[in-house]
Design a protein around this nucleic acid. Structure first.
Length: 603
RNA sequence: GGCCCCGUAGCUCAGUGGAUAGAGCAACAGCCUUCUAAGCUGUGGGUCACACGUUCGAAUCGUGUCGGGGUCACCA
């Protein structure tokens, strides 16, 4: 149990003396504002109405009662206006520290038997990944880790959008303009190579449309009649008819893209337990359409197309099958959702998808519900905001995207520059250096993208490079490296002995009441780690963890500057501070691991 | 136009019913003979878009206005 939970229970027990029943939701407990004495605060306003007591009287009575019955945990209180401020005893905190400082998985929950699927990443195979994909990947990966830390079994999945008209565009452009060039012959990364042909297509297509408009066509007509568009559509038809030549080209170009993606995914540490390919799933979902038709949930229009009416849900009428019997996006998505459920039987299925698809995901869930799918209620759209540039949205077609590979390179280079300027690791071998640059560069980038609430849009300014100071990944990594340095200096042997002494022989009573403010603050903060993990799960929000580790590191750095660990006043203090340092490093390490960020021992 | 999201310091963001609204960056002033200065300490910086309302108490909840974005495809 956390201290806040203990305090809440203590309040409830104390309230029982008034003969009324209360629940934990009837009052709030928060951290005490630093300007007042105390560690945690019970807010009394919501209670005084029912009890018809003044805040002062209620606060005093509660405070007294809580301390009488929980003397080993709480020791002093004051009541100011409607706030009851209570202090936590040093005994409790030191005992907590002794018990947990060496506990590597502190804060994490035991398996709870529930299974959650997390779908993220979902790239298109016609262009390389950009900054928006990075945000998606980092959020998805981190959410999976956070769920695991809360005891869930997690299956990470990815649906690759490897077919459709947009894929044919780059295929056609390659056929027309490449003269047989390959990633090898041009020495390019496969996904970038293919992406360039997608851009090429759009440029040429635009020219054709403009020419047609000059001959007097409307924009709509021109867009439909442009030869490139007609050829693309023909190619899609050929693809669906299993035309050998088209399929072969498709396979060849997709292989190039996968090769490129593989490199990027490996660098950023994204991985999946199961990858679905749209080319294999796009035909799914037709069976339920005919079922739904029989049940009268769906209806057919004159042109044989099949629809569902969602107007009673505040949505529109939605097409689920074209007149020619082919699927649309929503149909295969429902089919895939069903397949995922049949294959893995998750209790919940989280879709990490951009907020521009809010409507689509809403429709998906509503249709599944109407069709009586058992997994409908478990669908959850983790809707994250777009990464925008100061000039607005990133648009592939206008070349205003921040390329993922470029950004990663730049981050690693910046890490290298900082490291060389500081010159602290001159004894590192080339391989160690390279690893360090990656750890720091990726750490900075992941932290930057995860420290913001996923739901919110965020602005990235390419002119200002991502920082390595302040509220950043490297700041937390630096704190960790400093601790490692201290622990190394003392030697792991001594630390082991120290912790053994502490658990077998308690501190003499005369010394335990003397935690210094920063020591106490740190232990209190460490104690809140499990609450942070739980909050991150409740909100499906990695930024909770980013904020937590930053604040912990911040307090530690103040402590580190203020008090010497190795040259502490006496052996007891030294052991205490070593335990604090050790536990801080452990918690920073597991917190950052939840964000997909690794820690260097030196930097 | 309908529906949805957002508006907090110069910039990027926390805070979503509690005490005098916080960080980081940027600016300025200090701190390395002592465990890593990618650090620490301090200063300045706010009409929480605006108005009205609910409440003992509102950045937080409600209504309206203004501003920004998304979406409303037989694209994915």
């Amino acid at each position: 149990m956390t201290i806040i939970e203990i305090l809440k229970n203590a309040v409830l027990e104390s309230l029982a003396i008034y003969g009324q029943s209360f629940t934990p939701k009837d009052f709030q407990v928060s951290e005490t504002n630093p300007e007042f004495e105390g560690d945690y605060t019970v807010i009394l306003f919501s209670l005084i109405k029912n009890l018809k007591k003044s805040p002062d009287v209620l606060g005093s009575e509660l405070g007294k009662h809580i301390i009488e019955n929980n003397g080993s945990i709480f020791y002093g209180f004051n009541v100011i206006k409607g706030f009851l401020n209570i202090s936590v005893t040093d005994e409790y905190l030191t005992a907590f520290l002794q018990k947990n400082h060496n506990h590597k998985s502190f804060g994490k929950q035991q398996p709870n038997g529930k299974k959650i699927m997390v779908e993220y990443s979902s790239p298109n195979t016609n262009k390389p990944l950009h900054l928006g994909h990075l945000r998606n990947n980092f959020i998805g990966w981190s959410i999976a880790e956070i769920l695991k830390a809360n005891g869930y079994e997690v299956i990470k999945t990815c649906i690759v959008n490897d077919r459709g008209i947009h894929i044919c565009k780059s295929m056609l452009a390659w056929q027309l303009f490449a003269n047989g060039a390959t990633p090898q012959s041009t020495n390019m990364k496969g996904d970038h190579f293919v992406g360039d042909y997608y851009v090429k297509f759009n440029n040429e297509y635009k020219k054709q449309v403009e020419e047609l408009i000059q001959t007097g066509r409307t924009k709509d007509e021109a867009e439909k009649e442009a030869p490139l568009m007609k050829e693309t559509q023909q190619m899609l038809v050929d693809w669906e008819n299993n035309d050998a030549e088209v399929k072969q080209l498709w396979k060849k170009m997709n292989a190039w893209v996968y090769e490129g993606f593989e490199i990027t995914y490996k660098r950023i540490g994204s991985d999946f337990d199961k990858t679905y390919y749209e080319s294999e799933t796009y035909l799914l979902g037709k069976d339920f359409v005919y079922e739904g038709l029989d049940k009268g949930i769906l209806y057919k229009k004159d042109d044989e197309s099949i629809w569902i009416d969602l107007t009673e849900n505040g949505l529109d009428e939605k097409l689920v099958l074209r007149g020619d019997g082919t699927s649309v996006y929503i149909t295969s998505d429902i089919g895939l959702a069903k397949q995922k459920y049949e294959q893995y039987g998750p209790d919940q299925s989280i879709y990490v998808v951009g907020d521009e698809q809010n409507y689509h995901l809403k429709v998906l869930q509503v249709i599944c519900k109407k069709l009586g799918m058992p997994f409908a209620d478990g669908i959850y759209h983790l809707s994250y905001g777009m990464v925008e540039l100061p000039t607005g949205k990133m648009k592939s077609r206008e070349g205003t995207v921040v390329d993922a590979d470029d950004l990663i390179d730049e981050m690693i280079l910046t890490a290298k520059r900082h490291t060389e300027e500081l010159g602290k690791v001159k004894d590192f071998h080339e391989e160690e250096l390279q690893k360090l640059y990656e750890t720091l560069g990726l750490g900075a980038m992941k932290f930057y993208l995860l420290r913001v609430d996923p739901k919110k849009r965020m602005v990235f300014n390419p002119e200002e490079s991502i920082d390595f100071h302040g509220f950043t990944g490297p700041f937390v990594q630096y704190t960790f490296a400093r601790i490692q340095s201290v622990l190394k200096k003392v030697g792991s042997l001594q630390l082991a002995v120290a912790s053994e002494q502490q658990t077998t022989n308690n501190y003499p009573p005369s010394t335990i009441h003397q935690l210094l403010p920063l020591e106490k603050q740190l232990i209190l903060k460490l104690e809140q780690f499990s609450a942070a993990i739980a909050q991150a799960r409740d909100e499906l929000n990695p930024s909770v963890i980013a904020n937590y580790v930053f604040h912990l590191a911040k307090i530690f750095n103040s402590f580190y500057t203020e008090h010497s660990i190795v040259n502490a006043e006496n052996e007891l203090k030294k052991n205490l501070r070593l335990s604090i340092a050790d536990m801080t490093a452990n918690v920073l390490g597991s917190g950052m691991q939840l964000l997909g960020i690794s820690m260097p021992d030196r930097m």
